[in-house]
Design a protein around this nucleic acid. Sequence first.
RNA 1: GGACAGGUGGCCGAGCGGUUAAUGGCAGCAGACUGUAAAUCUGCCGCUCCUUGCGGGCUACGGAGGUUCGAAUCCUCCCCUGUCCA
Length: 310
Amino acid sequence: MYPLIAIVGPTASGKSELGLYLAGSLSGEIINYDSVQIFRHLNIGAAKPSIEDRQRVPHHMIDIREPTEIFTAGDYQKEARLVLEEIRNRRKLPILVGGTGLYLRALTEGLFDGPARSVYWRNRLEMTAERKGRKYLHSVLKRLDRVAAIRIAENDKPKVIRALEVRLQTGIPLSQHLDEMPRRPITGFEVHAIGLNPPRDELYKRINERVNRMFQAGLVEEVRDLLANGIPPSAKPFEAIGYRHVITNIDSCIPPDETIRIIQRDTRRYAKRQMTWFRKQPEVTWFDGPGDNEEIKNKVHQFLKPLVTF
RNA sequence: GGACAGGUGGCCGAGCGGUUAAUGGCAGCAGACUGUAAAUCUGCCGCUCCUUGCGGGCUACGGAGGUUCGAAUCCUCCCCUGUCCA
């Protein structure tokens, strides 16, 4: 079994710093699992590692799509697994760093072997939702996939649509796919998950500061440039925290302080959601401090060292 | 000293006689989530008890009284804050 490190934790907990450090001390390469860093040109708001860091340590799964392209958890699974193979062939330690729990799960545990998204069905279902409402769409799901309908909230349009899409395309309910079809977990790798969980106060402080720094670094200018270069405001990664706020306020008279406040708030809420996801993640060894803390770095290193012989 | 305006749960702010422990927002907490996931969605958010129920008790709308079957909502006095006039 080849070792694979996964660093998990909320945004701004210092995952990147820890990843960099471990890559240095354990001869590793970094594989991003953040859904926004996938996209080129979104740098400041995505908190991408610096050019220097990326020259020092190889980074993968960063800047691999244009903002206008579509990228899904399925794509991630496929491409990241290839990267993993390459790193193993090079006899380096793969270190997963990021914050998108679904991507990490897709990579390690696999997705069910179902259909990718279908533009055709999406459009139809989207229109139905538009015309008749989410409630109605949910009632259709109740008819076609009772189990999924119970699991998915009436208002959760994206999940209702996905469930319907799977059912309509395959004839088999999503719930059945999920419950009965075998997934394809990653093989040949042994995952060691390191969790970073700084005290809440400290985390929130770090988040607030980080958002301030993003503005100082020119987040607004970055968004302006992207728009000027023809990337439409509707581009998927512009839905990300920070980007969507800047875009909606860019031509308004809302003061920057207010925009910053909202971004900080939404980032905090995002961090909470990440924690509820990662808490469920199996076999994580948690460390109660930020990843850029020397003591934490050492502890993690000591912990990992005997486990990652390769 | 006088004239207004106002004092509501951690904060802001509605309510202006009765399904009001009190809309909403902020702040916070917990959770769900296998194909655009930094997305999307759900619940809690005065205290407390249990047989966890559209359950019971207690405490709450500056303070003290009063009117009323019933008051955050009306009246009286007091305290405090803001603006204006002296």
